[in-house]
Amino acid sequence: MAFLSLEGLSKHFGTHVAVDGLTLAVEKGEFVSLLGPSGCGKTTTLQMIAGFVEPSGGAIRLEGRDLLAVKPAKRGLGIVFQSYALFPHMTVAENVAFGLEMQGVAAAERTRRVGETLELVGLGTFAGRYPRQMSGGQQQRVALARALVIRPQILLLDEPLSNLDAKLREEMQIELRQIQRTVGTTTILVTHDQAEAMALSDRLVVMNHGRAEQIGPPHEAYERPATPFVASFLGRTNLVNGTTVRPEKIWFATSGLAGKVRTRIFQGNHWLYQIETADGLVTVIRQNTGEAMPGEGEAVHLAWAAT
């Protein structure tokens, strides 16, 4: 039996269908991402698990128990919000201690666990600060510590990294993954960032128009997309000769599809090409190995492995 299961979960707002019969089984300790463009229903799904939005139909079960019958305050879930939602009038330690206080944990035990959790997220020396005195990345960690300290059955992450700059986001992805591995909490991440979802998750749920288009491990979804939507959402694709080919799987050859280099962009570790062919514009990504590459205006031939 799955740890958390969504069974035909739906949400209608008037005539608008936000979530349309979503079924998903999450195993204990698994890291699952709900991935999709804005308006695909991923956040609504998260809010229904959290209890802030009431489903129009379907069921949510946690270890077989009906979660919908449990009040949001009693569900014991840890949530990290996009805006972090820290309590601005409380110090970092008070923020993190809040959940323990609500559970009636004794003061000494509380202090110990708050200290422990702040260590875990690398903020051991920040206990006395206020959120406004911290950077976005640090606030994000406080939010994570506050959610983890109550030892939640499930950790829900709502676009937790989207307010950080690109470099910090990458660092936090690695750290988040490590922390999740350490504590082993079942985690559901909502994101529109396919790179983030692929980097972090055991499995992806690629959503569109309230439905799951594909559920599976990131590598599988990328290599064998179930629908054209999944293919285009998980990275770039080319449609040549009626088949979809990833740009990094096309190489320059002596024969094959003839074309002319329209633009060539250097991106450090790789080159990004736009090739004009009889089949239309084809995107090609080649590793930068230090060798000379075809320049703009040059005639080239493209080849790729048959799938």
Partner: peptide, 27 residues
């Protein structure tokens, strides 16, 4: 007021009354 701040408090186990007294009113 950011609603998710109150949602955060609820998810941490705070009753409606506690949310009002400890979070909403101070904010």
């Amino acid at each position: 007021l950011d609603r998710s701040i109150e949602h955060a408090a609820i998810s941490l186990g705070a009753s409606d009354r506690t949310v009002l007294r400890r979070i909403t009113l101070p904010l």
